[in-house]
Design a protein around this nucleic acid. Sequence first.
DNA 1: ATTGTAATTGAGAATCAATCTCAACATAAA
DNA 2: TTTATGTTGAGATTGATTCTCAATTACAAT
Lengths: 144, 144
Amino acid sequence: MEKKIFREFLEKKGCKFTKERAAILSEVFSNHGHFDPEDLFSKIREKEAKASRASVYRTLQLLLECGLVEQVERIDKHAHYEHTFGHKHHDHLICLRCGKVIQLFSEKLEKLQESLCKKENFRCVSHTLEMKGYCEKCGSKGRK
Amino acid sequence: MEKKIFREFLEKKGCKFTKERAAILSEVFSNHGHFDPEDLFSKIREKEAKASRASVYRTLQLLLECGLVEQVERIDKHAHYEHTFGHKHHDHLICLRCGKVIQLFSEKLEKLQESLCKKENFRCVSHTLEMKGYCEKCGSKGRK
DNA sequence: ATTGTAATTGAGAATCAATCTCAACATAAA
DNA sequence: TTTATGTTGAGATTGATTCTCAATTACAAT
């Protein structure tokens, strides 16, 4: 399914659906957590189907472009991603102590955001809400 | 005022309020836009009061820790900051075409976020809402 | 003032994610 | 098959950020 979407996107763009891109796509959709490019690269390296680091970065860019993947805010400083096809948009609560990420969705929140954009005549194409703090388990233990 | 806060924070931490830190602090509060470490460094370099790049980065870290400065989401990939003392919290609309940043505050939104955190027993210490899209001027012109 | 000591500084080196280069390779249409 | 165009990977490059460490400074105690 995501394969079809990606293939069509590439076609429309005059690009090719190569085996490297296929391998990267399938790895991206092979599980549901967040990942970073280096993760992705090394997981791909372990399999028969290989791709270079450069291709991983390039393909990630394409996946962002066609909306199959979104960039997620970072606890540390490098980029994190998650695939989004088949998932509803959601926001994140990020625990500063244990790194746990809680996903969250609120229809009310989405609506409110929309209306705020409208007020500014801003055409929103994506948004990120990230709340950092302490999760239930870590909450009582205070700060880092 | 922010000077007092910073000084007390440093003291509590067993650190010193040096002239370099003072220079950096005052530069950070000398105007109200976003900035990045390199900006800050070069502006400081132009003045009599100097500080090294290393000190800029180190001091920025301290300013984050004590809450005088917040990290803002990035359009490109490097870190941006803004000082926050004396400002209400606000969110950002970021134009993907011209880079314009519109600040935004909604009491309703804040309240809603709070209640979502409470539902998850999450103690939120900071949050960032960033909506990316096209501003009024750029909106009609479509995508990059 | 002087001294002791622990924090701080700056210049440049080091790190590290991300991007770029470019020659060799694939793919599809003519 | 030829041609044109897109793609690949290894390694080099970039560029922001962090680290190193000897020299310096601030501050409290003499």
